[in-house]
């Protein structure tokens, strides 16, 4: 596999293949056993929205990841907060996949108010077009995502519709280059 190409990112079939691959790769045990609690949790989301909207990428002990289309992310996020009890975003990050012409934005959600969910992190991810990267903001559902989304905007150029400040945050004010965490940005001399 070349260094720029992560595992299959084209189309849902390959994504499913990727998810299986990740599961088997981490530990042989995970292959057969999907942890009960995490499995139930994801099942609730899938049965509410259907497996056409919610794609399960992996379910591991304490960590689960789902992929939803951008136009459904607000509904899924509201459901995850109000019904399941994930109440804050620990991290929001973006990953650039130039080969697929896509940018993936991942919300790592945790819970303080539900004791059972303390060890759980739910990765809610969505993908947007690389050339016109726009996503609805989640700050009305998870206030804690505010600065993380602003950072994602300046580092990857994802415009969050409805976010009050899609502005510079960590980079210098006179920064006049492409967003640095996109893959075509190279550190000088390397």
């Amino acid at each position: 596999m070349s260094s720029d190409q992560p595992a299959g990112q084209n189309g849902s079939e390959q994504k499913k293949a990727e998810s299986n691959h990740i599961q088997t790769s981490i530990s042989k045990k995970d292959e057969a056993i999907i942890p009960e609690f995490e499995g139930d949790l994801i099942n609730k989301i899938v049965s509410r929205f259907g497996d056409k909207i919610v794609q399960v990428i992996y379910i591991r002990p304490g960590r689960s990841k789902i992929l939803v289309p951008p136009n459904e992310i607000l509904q899924v996020a509201s459901f995850v907060r109000d019904t399941l009890g994930f109440d804050h975003a620990e991290s929001v990050s973006g990953t650039d996949y130039p080969k697929d012409n896509q940018i993936e934005v991942i919300y790592h959600l945790g819970s303080y108010s539900v004791d059972k969910l303390a060890s759980q992190v739910l990765a809610l991810s969505t993908r947007t077009d690389r050339n016109d990267s726009r996503l609805p903001t989640l700050i009305n559902i998870f206030k804690s995502a505010e600065y993380h989304e602003r950072e994602t905007f300046e580092m990857l150029g994802v415009y969050f519709e409805g976010h009050p400040r899609n502005e510079r945050f960590l980079l210098p004010e006179d920064w006049a280059d492409i967003p640095p965490l996109r893959k075509e940005f190279r550190i000088k001399g390397r």
Binding site: M1, S93, T95
Partner: peptide
């Protein structure tokens, strides 16, 4: 927390 994406090479992808 660290979120690391690996593409199978010795260097992290993200």
């Amino acid at each position: 927390g660290y979120y690391i994406v690996s593409d199978g090479t010795p260097k992290p992808y993200r």
